[in-house]
């Protein structure tokens, strides 16, 4: 591996201690099995886990949002309003840029985000995975924006994954929509994301908002993004094998219903941020008039 001169020089190669733990003990494996079994049995497939969302958490960004799933996934998102776009490379891109703005998504995973082996930041595999997630995020968020109101500009969305415990893309979509709405960009609707997965058992049911362990053991995974007020799907991403088209259709309906149920939480957090900003501005105006 070539040496990265822009970072501190560490060991050339390192592995996580979990590998040796897996090698050593059958007792540890049995304990893990018990834990997984216990965690899986009482789970209601239709139940949604609690979700914490808060908008306007960063002061430097035009808009920002923080979304935390009960499984432990933590996503921080910052958005900036219309900025000047650099010159497009081709004539066709230039003609398109004249008519409407462009959305630029950036997805970053913190080195401490995953349990187990710590990924090397900036490595090729990590960058490719982040680019795929950024492309999926852009696909989900672009239909929500009124880009024709901002010609020759670009909107920036930067997502930072602080902790990965499953359902990462769904949390990023919800956080990105909240941050864009908080930044004051004109939108058609908010985007709500939800993830599902199914175990390798043929009779297994689809599970909403899977945790990281469930996602790792799953045979099929699906993420949907919905615009609830317009009742339109903005993105669908799935992977896996061994499912029939009826199973996929059932999963899609399942996920869309979950998005409808998640929407009031995001709406309430955005309304709270708007009220908070208005109250703060009124307090500042009152202080200014008093002085």
């Amino acid at each position: 591996m070539p040496v990265d001169h822009r970072r501190l020089c560490g060991p050339e190669e390192s592995h996580a201690p979990a590998l040796w733990a897996a090698v050593c003990g059958a007792a540890v494996a049995a304990e893990d099995g018990e834990e997984e079994g216990g965690d899986e049995s009482p789970r209601d497939p239709w139940a949604l886990r609690p979700l914490f969302a808060r908008a306007a958490v960063l002061s430097q960004a035009d808009g920002s949002a923080y979304v935390e799933l009960s499984g432990g996934t933590k996503v921080l998102c910052a958005a900036w309003g219309p900025r000047e776009a650099p010159e497009p490379p081709t004539a066709a891109a230039a003609a398109a840029a004249l008519r409407m703005g462009r959305l630029q998504c950036d997805f970053r995973r913190a080195p401490f985000a995953s349990r187990g082996a710590r990924r090397r930041p900036g490595s090729t595999a990590e960058r490719d995975a982040e680019r795929d997630l950024a492309a999926a995020l852009r696909t989900a968020l672009e239909p929500t924006l009124q880009l024709e109101r901002y010609p020759r500009t670009r909107l920036l969305v930067s997502v930072l994954l602080l902790q990965d415990e499953g359902s990462v893309l769904a949390a990023a979509i919800s956080a990105g929509a909240l941050a864009l709405a908080d930044s004051g960009v004109q939108m058609y609707d908010l985007a709500v994301g939800c993830a599902l997965c199914r175990g390798p058992d043929p009779s297994a049911a689809w599970v909403l908002q899977p945790g990281e362990a469930e996602e790792r053991r799953a045979a099929v995974r699906l993420t949907v993004a919905l615009l609830p007020a317009l009742n339109q799907v903005s993105a669908v991403q799935g992977a896996g094998s061994g499912s029939t088209p009826e199973d996929w259709a059932e999963a899609l309906c399942f996920g869309l219903d979950a998005c409808y149920r998640l929407y009031p939480v995001l709406r309430q957090s955005l309304l709270q941020a708007t009220c908070r900003r208005r109250r703060r501005r009124r307090g500042r105006a009152t202080a200014a008039s008093t002085a």
Binding site: G81, P82, Q146, Y150, A181, D182, S183, G184, V185, Q186, M187, Y188, L270, L271, A273, T274, R277, R278, R281
Partner: peptide
């Protein structure tokens, strides 16, 4: 299309105008 406060201004002739305003700087 914005997160803000709804304002309804009545005009003398015809329908009122409904708009959404934000306290922070407009884009």
């Amino acid at each position: 299309s914005l997160a803000g406060c709804v304002e309804k201004t009545s005009e003398e002739s015809g329908l009122p105008v409904v708009s959404v305003v934000r306290d922070s700087d407009p884009q």
